[in-house]
Computed example of a mutant assay.
Amino acid sequence: MSQRTTLLSMPLIQAGQAQKHVTHNEALVILDALVQPVALDADRTEPPATPDEGDRHLVAAGAAGAWAGHDGDIAVLANGGWLFLAPQAGWKVHVRALSAELVFDGTLWAPAAAAPVATLGVNATADTTNRLSVAADGTLLTHEGGDHRLTVNKATAGDTASLLFQTGWSGRAEMGTAGTDGFSVKVSADGTDWHEGVTVDAASGVPGFPSLPYFSAIKPGAWAEITTPNTDLPFDTATANVGGHFNTATGAFAAPVAGLYAFLINGFLADTTDARICYAINGLSQVTQMQVLKGPMPLSFLAVFALAPGDRVTCRTGNLTKSLRYFQSHTALSGWKIA
């Protein structure tokens, strides 16, 4: 009959043995040390000066004194003396000084590797789509003495890696690489219709502003003459009209949002021209910004206005001494938001 158990090496009571309680008690001491094992530390090579009964330590390499020759063992103070338990591969002990678990790999004690967690909910419920879910007033990601980088990785260029911002679980803004490797920022008022505000080309780094209001318009034709003041010039053909804010039927641009807007008219004048030209906001001529035109000359007039949402801007004649005569297909009106 074996004298000790195979796994924990506990003594077995033998047939006809006297003082069976000694063997039994020794086995209980071993069980008491190894069930729910918690060691005080793992860096000692010698016993502490004033140990307490039941104290457990993982003996560090280079053990000396009463622990000599027991490197890696679990040292337990039992009945006033040190009991040494040789670990087997896979044994796990919580070390209070480290606030961590160590696992014996057959040679050394090493930190236990964290097992992968399929889902994690912090004050919230996680699922197989949102495997990490946090409900809190804030989430802090900080450095550990240096840099800190948050990585969002996607499989292919056609996939999406982004940050999505919602209101009531409905999308309102998104930034990232959505469907391409170019970076973009887009917004939505209802979670359905999205508008790109900023794009950055992946190959060149050149930024773009796809929704920035801009238009350019002409009126095809030859010479035209206007002989009445405060008359809007007609521009019925848009060569560019981002956002559709220029009305070719009225020749007016309507500001979609508040901001500073620039307007430019370029053209060519006849020698009979003797007039003034200006811009009008909501039908009111802006007399503080008016240009005098006389004789055959290039026409170029730039003005900047602060507009409110819905303000309408047209280009028109001001005071006329004679008339404004200009070549239509050579005259273009354009405008864009600058700030």
Rank of each mutant, 00 (worst) to 15 (best):
T248N: 03
T248I: 14
A249W: 00
A249L: 11
A249E: 08
T250E: 00
T250W: 02
T250Q: 01
T250G: 05
G251T: 06
G251E: 00
A252C: 07
F253T: 05
A254R: 01
A254N: 02
A255H: 04
P256L: 06
P256R: 00
V257L: 06
G259K: 02
L260Y: 09
Y261F: 13
A262H: 07
A262I: 12
F263R: 02
F263S: 05
L264K: 04
N266T: 15
F268H: 08
L269W: 09
L269E: 03
A270I: 03
A270K: 07
A270T: 12
D271P: 15
T272K: 00
T272F: 06
T272L: 06
T273P: 08
D274H: 13
R276Y: 15
R276P: 02
R276Q: 15
I277Y: 00
C278P: 02
Y279M: 05
Y279R: 00
A280D: 13
I281L: 10
N282M: 05
N282Y: 09
N282Q: 04
G283V: 14
L284R: 02
L284S: 14
S285G: 13
S285D: 10
Q286N: 12
V287K: 01
T288D: 09
T288Y: 07
T288L: 07
Q289L: 08
Q289W: 05
Q289F: 12
Q289I: 12
V292K: 01
L293H: 00
K294R: 13
K294S: 15
G295D: 08
G295H: 05
G295M: 06
M297N: 14
P298R: 02
L299C: 08
L299W: 04
